[in-house]
């Protein structure tokens, strides 16, 4: 399957953000993550917290270089929603992408919205 054939649709670009539908909210369990592929090949890790908020970070773990963050355990540290890298357990703030253990490291975040039960990722 090539990227062009994927079920990713550019949405109306009012604010110059391109939105791509990724999956139904129901396809993502609470306090779990999934990986999504954007048309340009970017891998995004999409997480849903217990309160049904949805966050999107780069899937690439900056420490190992492997695209695995979506497979980490979702939880909280001191009230901050985080995902733990499944490789070496560094934690990333789901809201900002900041690494909890190393202040000089952060992963990119992506705009995300949920409408009509569907999760979409934004690309500016």
């Amino acid at each position: 399957m090539t990227v062009q054939q994927m079920t990713v649709q550019p949405m109306n670009a009012v604010d110059s953000t391109m939105w791509f539908e990724v999956c139904a909210l129901g396809a993502l369990g609470r306090e779990e993550g999934v990986a999504a592929l954007l048309p340009d090949g970017t891998q995004v890790a999409v997480f849903r917290t217990h309160d049904d908020r949805v966050f999107a970070l780069a899937n690439l773990d900056p420490f190992s270089g492997a695209a695995v963050l979506a497979r980490g355990i979702v939880g909280d540290l001191g009230g901050t929603p985080v995902v733990a890298s499944p490789m070496h357990k560094q934690h990333f703030d789901l809201r900002t992408g900041a690494c909890v253990e190393d202040g000089t490291v952060a992963v990119p975040t992506y705009p995300v919205r949920v409408s009509g039960g569907t999760i979409s990722l934004g690309r500016t």
């Binding site: 994927m6 999504a36 891998q43 695209a67």
Partner: peptide, 13 residues
Amino acid sequence: TSFVNAPGAPDPT
């Protein structure tokens, strides 16, 4: 699945 929106697409990395 590798990608929720592209099951079967290989991880390009």
